[in-house]
Design a protein around this nucleic acid. Structure first.
Length: 531
RNA sequence: GCGGGUGUAGCUCAGUGGUAGAGCGCCACGUUGCCAACGUGGCUGUCGUGGGUUCAAGUCCCAUCACCCGCUCCA
């Protein structure tokens, strides 16, 4: 499938627009149009229904170790800055970068190394991105070139000290950049923040700066105690949230796939440590099945377990649900959702302070003064089981899905072009549950009372379903218009309707028609949405 | 971030320094009895944006923004 065709359809039919388009657009931001908002809402509602509101906590779900409860929450986007310090985002998403004015390259400040070289009465800091022996060799080569010396005159250069980080350097005018020919081309380090910064309060200064959340998860962790205290939930249970998150991605690309503002659908599932591996497996499989049930084909979808060295510092297991997007090279997949076993990392961080791994253990990271680098809340976030009299920090399984990525995947999967009697038909084979319009109602022609009858049916169905009325142009054209936006059913009032109160029911995928009585339409549509 | 490409009507795209175009779509009227029918009429443009060169710029130059491809980087 050609991605351009889908992008064009999305624009033409009102699924997706570039943000601020009349001003030339803004990189990494997208708007959902009238049909797009319905599609995305349907996907989010399907998720909420299947994970939370429709969940039966009295039954053991397929593959689950025991019963579990599910509740929802909706947290603020801006939170206390300490949340991000303890979660690790502040340190991780907060880099200093230096730019090279000559080579136009950008380097992470802490990843550039180098050593001082003296020759021809000049002292220069020769920088490189390599470390170890490779770094030593590279700096030698660069120094020879810079001082315009032959390889055999290497001894004319004297080296002052070992390979050190650029962080230790203050006189940037004596630095030879990793890809530069002249000295002094590197800019001083500049703050490069992957989190969006904002100011709280109209008169705010630096002390009142805050961040837009880079993930929804932390709102759940900091409310863990509130939920436990207010709802009578018992472990194991999950807290779910749908909401916007923000990341200042360096390279937004591939339509909405990597955006700077995006929507997440996240569950933090809290369980006893001894049961956590079973729950991890349960959520992994359950979440994969959710996508296939809604229409993603298993040939383009994969569940991939992370390698040991790919795991985050806190994780004891992570799997990605990935989709073979058409804009990716064959064989490559893009992430739709990550299911992570996070252990007790998050709750513990918000109790004690930012954690780092030390061997097999998580310990509070200390600052230079020997105190915690980022202090936790000091609140006791342990869970007390009054049956077993056990007090413990629950382990967490986190299925974290991207709503926009899911929406994009469903669109890609649904797009088909096919030849019908020499004409190309464009059709979105969306699952009826997520289709923006469930059915369109047409009068076959605009006479003999057909429009009146069709309008009456439309008015009645509209109370319960997202339906669309169209009497413009020939009937064939109206069918194709609906095919293109994924409407599963077209209902047409024709001459026979006046005699026996039946209408034709036309299927988007098979193009087959059947006659059904007007009274049976609602039941028929309900069945369609159940499947 | 780097390199290459693209930017003209809602969409797809023509356009040689000299009057802004086509197809599709959309709207109205008529016609029309089931898969992008037909007729008539109509709407649609800051030629991505800002500068410059020129008597004259959609066209040439510079800058900038956005999108696509390839690197690079990254949750």
């Amino acid at each position: 499938m050609d991605m351009d065709k889908l992008v064009s359809l999305c624009k033409r039919r009102g699924f997706l627009f570039q943000s601020s388009e009349i001003y030339g657009g803004l990189n990494g931001f997208w708007d959902y149009g009238p049909l797009g908002v319905e599609l995305k809402r349907n996907i989010k509602e399907a998720w909420w229904q299947d994970m939370i509101s429709g969940h039966n906590e009295l039954l053991i779900s397929n593959g689950a170790p025991c019963e579990h409860q599910m509740v929802g929450i909706d947290c603020s986007i801006i939170m206390h800055p300490q949340v991000w310090k303890c979660s690790g985002h502040y340190d991780l998403f907060h880099d200093f970068m230096v730019d090279c004015k000559e080579s136009k390259k950008r380097y992470r400040h802490d990843q550039v190394r180098g050593r001082w070289a003296l020759a021809k009465e000049q002292r220069v800091f020769i920088a490189t991105q390599s470390g170890g022996d490779e770094g030593l060799q590279e700096t030698e080569q660069k120094a020879l070139k810079f001082f315009n010396l032959r390889a055999k005159s290497l001894e004319e250069i004297s080296w002052d000290g070992p390979l050190v980080s650029l962080i230790t350097i203050t006189d940037f005018d004596k630095v030879l950049g990793p890809d530069a020919k002249a000295i002094g081309t590197l800019t001083p380090p500049r703050e490069f923040n992957l989190m969006f910064k904002t100011i709280v309060g109209a008169m705010g200064g630096e002390e009142s700066s805050a961040f837009l959340r880079p993930e929804t998860a932390q709102g759940i962790f900091v409310n863990f105690k509130n939920v436990v205290d207010s709802t009578r939930v018992k472990i194991p249970f999950g807290i779910a949230q749908i909401g916007k998150s923000f990341r200042n991605e360096i390279t937004p690309r591939n339509f909405t796939f990597r955006s700077r503002e995006f929507e997440q659908m996240e569950i933090e599932f809290f369980c006893h440590p001894s049961q956590s591996p079973e729950w991890y497996k349960y959520w992994r499989d359950r979440r994969y099945k959710w996508y296939t049930d809604l229409g993603l084909s298993s040939s383009r979808l994969q569940l991939r377990d992370h390698d040991k060295d790919e795991l985050s510092h806190y994780s004891c297991g992570t799997a990605d649900i990935e989709y073979a997007f058409p804009f990716l090279p064959p064989g490559e997949f893009g992430e739709l959702e990550g299911i992570a076993h996070r252990g007790d990392f998050d709750l513990k961080s918000h109790m004690e302070g930012k954690l780092v791994r030390s061997g097999d253990e998580l310990v509070v990271e200390l600052g230079e003064d020997g105190k915690p680098k980022h202090r936790g809340s000091g609140k006791d976030l342990r869970y007390f089981n009054d049956q077993t009299r056990e007090r413990f920090i629950p382990h967490v399984i986190e299925p974290s899905a991207g709503a926009d990525r899911g929406t994009l995947a469903f669109l890609c999967e649904a797009y088909f072009e096919e030849e019908i009697e020499g004409e190309t038909r464009v059709v979105l084979r969306l699952n009826p549950r997520i289709a923006p319009v469930k059915a369109a109602i047409f009068p076959l022609v605009n006479k003999d009372g057909m429009p009146e009858k069709a309008k009456a049916i439309y008015g009645d169905l509209k109370k319960e379903f997202a339906v669309y009325f169209d009497d413009g142009g020939a009937i064939g054209r109206r069918y194709r218009r609906q095919d293109e936006i994924g409407t599963p059913i077209c209902i047409t009032v024709d001459g026979q309707t006046n005699q026996d109160d039946t209408v034709t029911w036309r299927d988007r995928d098979t193009l087959q028609q059947k006659r059904i009585p007007i009274q049976g339409l609602k039941e028929e549509l309900r069945n369609l949405l159940k499947s």
